[in-house]
Simulated scan of single mutants.
Amino acid sequence: MPKIVSNKSVSRSPKEDSKVLVAGYMEAATAENTRRGYRSDVRVYEKWGGLLPASQNMLIEFLADMAQQRQMSTLRRYLASISKWHQLQGFVDPARSTQVKTLMRGIAKRHNRQARQAKPIAIAELEKIDGYLSLLAANHLDEMIDERTRKKERLVALRDRAMLLLGFWRAMRGAELLSVQIEDIKVIDGQGAEIYLRSSKADREGRGVTHRLPCLDALCPIEAIKAWLCESQLTSGPLFRSINRWGGVAGSAMGVNSLAPWMRGLLIKAGVADSESYSAHSMRRGFATHAVSCGTDLKELMSYVGWKDVSSAMRYIDHEASLQSLLPARLQR
């Protein structure tokens, strides 16, 4: 006899439907990449032995222990993630206590280490990587490979070139770069392009933001994107996707965690030294440093990139590199 399922077991009440809607809206208020970071940080706390909800004393012990092995910026991120968990779950937030704030000030003074930052990509390095990818795309690096491998290497080279140049010249965060959708790109021949980002870290209200790109005579991201789309035959969906060993292009976007090894792999293949000092942030820092070294006004740079305050912008500028490019040669000896 077939199993009869009661309507009551599958239907939801209006109140339950309302809860599902509320949960969906609450989730949409925070970017997926941010939620992933929160979960990862909370897991670090739990693996350490912390309990949730956390007491003030347990949180203090956790932070004091982590201070022996983590940067101050990482501690602040842990604290913010644990704090957000308590707020979302409706518990008293121990991160707001006076004792925890005092502890963080003490750690900052006692362990006053300079925060490690990704090394910026200089224009010379960008040209070197671009040169390598251009040769790879033209199949000039290994003429003995079979046709299938040749096709795959060309696809990878054209995708990587588009990612690199767009990430650099628009100073995009990694998550923003991988969130670009093909249908949100509007190319205006001879003028440039407009790229609409549906969400980003800086777009707190979720309204979306449009970035503009001019045409460039060299290292042009617009031409690189057009070449990638022409070769891949993609017409919609994520712009940047993984490519399997047979040259098949995935349907979904590349993962954010793949960006750092992707960048370091490119540097190694192109022959750039000290690849471990670079990350996906190197494109963003590289553009900011290049713009300042060319005399770009800081306010103009902030408006172009989307920084809201000067302190955020200053963290991305390699002041030594930008100063060296502006100093007369006689002062650099």
Rank of each mutant, 00 (worst) to 15 (best):
L327K: 15
T98Y: 05
W307R: 07
A157R: 04
N257K: 09
L266I: 01
V292D: 06
A54D: 08
V256A: 10
T98S: 09
K15H: 08
A329H: 13
R198M: 08
M302W: 09
L213W: 08
W262F: 11
T235W: 01
Q191A: 12
S6N: 10
A162T: 02
L234Q: 15
K3V: 13
G306F: 07
S6W: 12
W228K: 01
E320W: 07
A227R: 06
K101A: 13
A288P: 01
F168I: 06
T30L: 13
R173S: 02
D274R: 11
K84P: 00
A321H: 08
D318F: 10
K299N: 09
G131T: 07
Q191D: 12
R207Y: 03
R113P: 01
R245G: 00
S277A: 14
R198Y: 03
C230Q: 14
A118Q: 06
L126C: 08
A29R: 15
R170P: 01
S97N: 05
S236Q: 10
S199F: 04
H319W: 15
Q69C: 09
M144D: 15
V100C: 07
S6F: 11
R150G: 03
W246R: 10
Q87T: 14
A137T: 03
R150D: 09
A115N: 09
R110T: 10
H319Y: 14
V209R: 13
R212H: 14
I243F: 06
K101V: 09
T210N: 05
V187D: 09
A321G: 01
R285L: 07
R113Y: 14
R264I: 04
R113G: 01
S242F: 07
K47A: 09
L298N: 00
A250Q: 11
R161E: 04
K47T: 11
R70L: 09
N139R: 12
E183H: 02
S200P: 03
R43V: 12
L219W: 09
L51A: 12
A137F: 06
I4V: 13
K8E: 14
L79P: 02
R36D: 08
C220V: 08
G271T: 13
